[in-house]
Design a binder for these strands. Structure first.
Length: 563
RNA sequence: CGGAGUGUAGCGCAGCCUGGUUAGCGCACCUGGUUUGGGACCAGGGGGUCGAAGGUUCGAAUCCUUUCACUCCGACCA
């Protein structure tokens, strides 16, 4: 490729609203261009990178025995009604009608479509297992697209679905996919963790996320410093080392505590550790057909983890409620205790069987001391947010919290969709059984941004070997210098013939301009053909680190082959 | 979805409050010349239905109404 012919309108200025390095450099470097909210065009450079990543994903999946298919981006709504997700998926699902008033959706994920493809075509256990995937455009009408390619509405995703005759076989495939995904991310040069995850809207019995570590990540992940335990904070558990002190003795009864309602104040007021206090958090739980106030109780030294709380009451969503609304509903704000009546209650596990506690007395300005959970029949569940410094449940080591970007998610799906869509096969006994399924996703276009999020400097992109749009960038310092032009052109042709990935910057621009583009776009190496040519040398610059090395012209080809 | 903003040349912005000939600046672009190892300089030039629709007015980028788009904070989210 000659740079003079490449459609790569790089810019010196960043888009005004871009804050993340990946967003800024991908736009400035002419990889992508926004066309609508959360919708991006890929320019030649961006498309080269995207296709390279796509190819790696495909290669590893094919190696693992998966088969690529391509499903319609537009899906009849009928299928979504059948699975019950038409109403549940919410506004993220973009719906529309055709000229005949038939309803369609733009596929945000393709469980329904894939099950439909397989049902009635795979009839016997002899045809199993089967793992089908596609790398296709997805559309999710996100409430708030942002961060460039990291959270778009339209994006390229690899989604795979496997079909099995048993849970055991599905779990075998699940493990294989974990390994395959790890290989893909390793090939892309990413620092990532496989973490235990919440299964969210997709459902199923177990799932793991692939998190690329990045300071700008939107997810909090819990990582053990001593063993391999890692989990999304939504699913993380910690070992609770708190042991109540036998010395603590409380009389029982209500105590007048005017204007003392926060945990901080209570702890000071009673001169006692927060772990002896019971914290109440009220939320509004939203269900498909109703909403209700739920009160969660956790130990005073812990925070409520909202996803866990939501799962504990099986709600679609949890919303915050204002004090005013709570009071209207009869909740004694600031003085709520577990014995409150008329509301759904869930209590954190760490409070089970505890006594000598202080909690709200369910009337204004009073707290109950000496409260005991012993022999009480509450719904207990893990509701606690794991925090940095907590101890690992697996090995007792110290846990830390890091930021991550989710690039993949694998699910042990079970029969959720095969049952809903009545997709069955005949087992060894000739009985019809629903397929046991797994589902696996990788955000391909998101990976483009993630690579940069993890690999950049103050000048621009630093693509990994596997993702660089071109490996070598031959820079002609001054193309009016006929020697430079001739040598660079000859080198370019030689390298092309040798099958190397090379671009020749033959533009009539100044040296600084071309170097700037090299650094911004992030080719792996620049080969500068300039002043030093008179001394029989060229300069090779490695993008990562920007180290320079002078190489005699007759050794250039050999040197390049070694890189 | 709640809150807050912004739409003027390809990009970044000024002008609007206080209406008045021809709508301006920087970058980018075109032509010519000089330059050529860190995003050059000089001279000349092209490019706008001022987001859209309606209204007020002798006169609207500017005031009013409606609408669309985009962005930010939050809620939410492979």
């Amino acid at each position: 490729m000659r740079f003079s012919k490449l459609f790569a309108p790089t810019t010196k200025e960043a888009p005004k609203d871009a804050v993340l390095p990946s967003h800024i450099y991908l736009v400035r470097g002419a990889f992508i261009a926004q066309i609508g909210s959360g919708i991006y065009n890929f320019l030649p450079l961006g498309n080269i990178v995207l296709q390279k990543i796509r190819a790696i994903v495909k290669e590893e999946l094919d190696k693992a025995g998966c088969q690529e298919v391509l499903l319609g981006f537009v899906t009849p709504s009928e299928l979504w009604r059948e699975s019950g997700r038409y109403s549940k998926f919410g506004k993220e699902l973009l719906r529309f009608r055709d000229r005949k008033e038939n309803e369609f959706v733009l596929g945000p994920t393709h469980e329904e479509a894939m099950v439909d493809l397989v049902r009635n075509r795979v009839r016997s256990y002899k045809q199993l297992p089967l793992n089908l995937y596609q790398i296709n455009t997805k559309f999710r009408d996100e409430a708030r697209p942002r961060y460039g390619l990291l959270r778009g509405r339209e994006f390229l995703m690899k989604d795979g679905y496997s079909f099995h005759e048993s849970v055991e076989d599905m779990q075998r495939e699940y493990a294989l996919m974990e390994k395959t995904y790890s290989t893909i991310l390793e090939r892309l040069g990413l620092d990532f963790r496989v973490v235990e995850a919440d299964s969210g809207a997709i459902g199923g019995s177990g799932s793991k996320e692939f998190m690329v570590l990045a300071d700008n990540g939107e997810d909090d992940i819990v990582i053990c410093k001593s063993c391999d335990y890692a989990a999304n904070v939504e699913a993380a558990v910690a070992k609770d080392e708190f042991v109540p002190d036998d010395e603590v003795e409380m009389s029982s009864g209500d105590f007048h505590t005017p204007d003392v309602s926060s945990i901080e104040d209570l702890s000071n007021f009673f001169k006692i550790g927060k772990a002896y206090l019971v914290k109440a958090v009220a939320k509004k739980a939203i269900y498909e057909d109703r909403e209700e106030i739920v009160i969660f109780f956790i130990r005073g030294d812990r925070e409520l983890q909202e996803t866990k709380a939501q799962n504990s009451v099986d709600a679609l969503e949890l919303e915050d409620i204002g004090d005013e609304e709570l009071e209207k509903a009869g909740v004694p704000v600031g003085f709520i205790g577990p014995d409150i009546e008329g509301f759904k209650i869930v209590v954190d596990e760490t409070l089970k069987d505890r006594d000598n506690l202080i909690c709200g007395a369910n009337r204004k300005d009073y707290h109950t001391i000496g409260y005991s959970f012993k022999d009480k029949a509450f719904d207990f569940a893990d509701l606690s947010l794991v925090q940095a410094g907590d101890k690992c449940a697996k090995c007792g080591g110290e846990l830390e919290i890091k930021k991550g970007i989710e690039v993949g998610h694998i699910f042990q799906l079970g029969t959720k969709y095969s049952e809903a869509l009545n997709a069955t096969f005949l087992d060894r006994e000739g009985k019809a059984k629903p397929f046991v399924m797994g589902t696996y996703g990788i955000g391909v276009s998101r990976l483009v941004a993630v690579v940069i999020e993890q690999h950049h400097d103050e000048k621009g992109c630093i693509w990994s070997e596997a993702t660089a749009p071109f490996k070598f960038d031959i820079i002609i310092s001054n193309r009016k210098d006929s020697e430079q032009l001739a040598f660079a052109t000859k080198l370019y042709e030689e390298m092309q013939e040798a099958g190397l990935s090379v671009i020749l910057d033959d533009r009539d621009e100044r040296f600084g301009y071309k170097m700037g583009d090299f650094e911004l776009i992030g080719f792996s190496y620049a080969i500068i053909v300039g002043k030093s040519l008179k001394e029989g040398e060229v300069e090779i610059v490695k993008r990562a680190g920007l180290e320079r090395e002078r190489v005699p012209v007759n050794e250039v080809m050999q040197k390049i082959r070694e890189l």
